[in-house]
């Protein structure tokens, strides 16, 4: 199976409460360490699990290509992903201010047309914009089926995926014939969430994503990393949405500490009047 994984570099998702606002009213993430958006790391982990035998992960049994839209600095993230196990990487040279989700989806369509993967995997949303849109738009532009919010994927033949979609309070089971677009949530990296045809059903993966061994990082320096121009992939650079200024939400002031349960109940009754 050949899988394309779309990834995005974001400011450290665990410290987004430290963002500031610039004088121009834009979000300023200076000082936060750039990282891959966590759901994209999960998408890569999913792709690797689908293209290997979990009991012998050294042998690659498929191809995983990671692709990002970003400046030169984003190549560091791609290199790390090559170290983790991706076979090739592509960087489409573009910065966030010239992109919207729709243009990213159209650019990805350009890549898919060239690469012809069987499957495109994405995080269901990225940690900064949290728009949750690129996978669905890409599926429409490709005329492919989509399975969003995937928490579990099983395949016995690499042609059909059985996907468990986690929707509000329910799990929808769908069978999707490839090629398709699938977006993943965090549950996809649990020990039994991905069952490929190559891995014995008894195998348990470690919980979470794998980390690159130092040797692998060194070896990954030789793996191909190509650059492409956005204009070659999506000739029309018109944006459909334009982000204006941002503001910081009103800070919730820390309230009071109560000394005991009795005081808590009294305050909830007489002051907050919620019980």
């Amino acid at each position: 199976m050949k899988i394309l994984v779309a990834v995005k570099r974001v400011a450290d998702p665990d410290n987004l409460n430290k963002i500031k606002l610039s004088a121009q009213g834009k979000v300023d993430t200076t000082g936060l360490e750039p990282k891959a958006s966590p759901y994209d790391d999960y998408a890569l982990e999913t792709a690797l699990r689908l293209t290997e035998n979990g009991t012998n992960t050294k042998a690659r049994l498929g191809e995983v290509v990671v692709v990002t839209f970003g400046p030169k600095e984003a190549e560091q993230m791609l290199r790390a992903m090559l170290g983790t196990g991706a076979d090739r990487a592509i960087r489409i040279d573009a910065t966030d201010d010239v992109l919207d989700g729709d243009l990213v989806a159209r650019g990805l369509k350009g890549i898919v047309d060239k690469e012809k993967p069987d499957l495109v995997l994405l995080g269901y949303q990225q940690a900064e914009s949290e728009s949750n849109e690129v996978g669905q738009m890409l599926a429409e532009y490709l005329g492919w089926p989509q399975a969003t919010f995937a928490g579990r994927i099983t395949t016995t033949d690499d042609k059909v995926l059985l996907v468990e979609r986690e929707t509000d309070g329910a799990t929808a089971h769908v069978k999707v014939t490839l090629p398709a677009v699938v977006t993943v949530i965090d549950k996809i990296v649990k020990p039994k969430s991905v069952q490929s045809k190559h891995t014995p059903t008894t195998h348990n993966y470690a919980d979470g994503v794998r980390f690159a061994a130092l040797m692998a990082i060194m070896a990954a320096k030789k793996k191909p990393l190509a650059e492409q121009k956005l204009a070659d992939l999506a000739p029309d650079a018109t944006l459909k949405v334009r982000y204006a200024n941002a503001e910081l939400p009103p800070k919730r002031a820390a309230g009071v500490k109560v000394k005991d349960v009795k005081e808590l109940v009294t305050k909830l009754k007489t002051e907050a009047k919620v019980v």
């Binding site: 998702p13 204006a244 200024n245």
Partner: peptide, 16 residues
Amino acid sequence: RPTYAGNALSWLEIAT
């Protein structure tokens, strides 16, 4: 809309 895990509120306009 809330962005950055709810740490920013971003304003946007649709051009279509």
